[in-house]
Computed example of a mutant assay.
Amino acid sequence: MPRHVAKGRDFTRQALQDWGWDWTETSEDTLLLVSELLTNASLHSNGCRELVLTADGATLRIEVHDGTTALPVRHPAPRPGIPGGHGLHIVERLSDRWGTHTYGDGKAVWAEIETTRLEYGTTACAGARG
């Protein structure tokens, strides 16, 4: 599982760089969203079939497709310091919107970020860009 998450983060990092949305706190949030969605697919849905990133003028959309139609369940109150149950809370806090849709024998769990957050977000590594 860690290899798939790392590959997904690398793919996302490169896309953000190609789109000029790297080096902001929101770009780091985007990488964490990808990690959470991929980890959830690995732990609860037999793994990720596809990671899709799409962007238009207003929104970056992250979709993780897996091979089960079972919808994710957000734990009502994850306990601090206890592993598990935190992933969808993180997705909810870092994204502007998130949800799911089923199709055939699978589903996609998606999260969206407003592109203005990526374009004008706080710089995470001020001056580190070369």
Rank of each mutant, 00 (worst) to 15 (best):
E114A: 04
L51V: 00
E50V: 01
D56L: 12
E25R: 14
P76Q: 14
P80I: 05
E119A: 12
T69D: 08
E36S: 08
V34W: 07
T123N: 15
R49E: 07
V5K: 11
D66C: 12
G8C: 09
Y103M: 09
E25Y: 09
A77Q: 13
S95K: 12
L53R: 14
E25Q: 11
Q14L: 09
L71Y: 00
P78C: 04
G8S: 14
D96V: 14
L51G: 00
G130N: 02
S45E: 05
A58Y: 13
G8K: 02
C125H: 10
H44D: 01
G84V: 07
E112T: 11
E92I: 01
T24Q: 06
R117W: 02
T123E: 15
G121M: 03
L88E: 02
V109I: 15
H75Q: 12
W110N: 08
L37K: 08
V109L: 15
S35E: 15
G127I: 11
A6T: 14
W21P: 06
D29L: 05
A55K: 14
D105I: 06
D29H: 15
C125P: 00
D66L: 09
A70G: 00
E92M: 00
V34G: 04
N40Q: 13
V52L: 15
T69R: 15
A70E: 04
T100L: 09
R79N: 01
A111S: 06
S45Y: 07
L60H: 13
H86E: 13
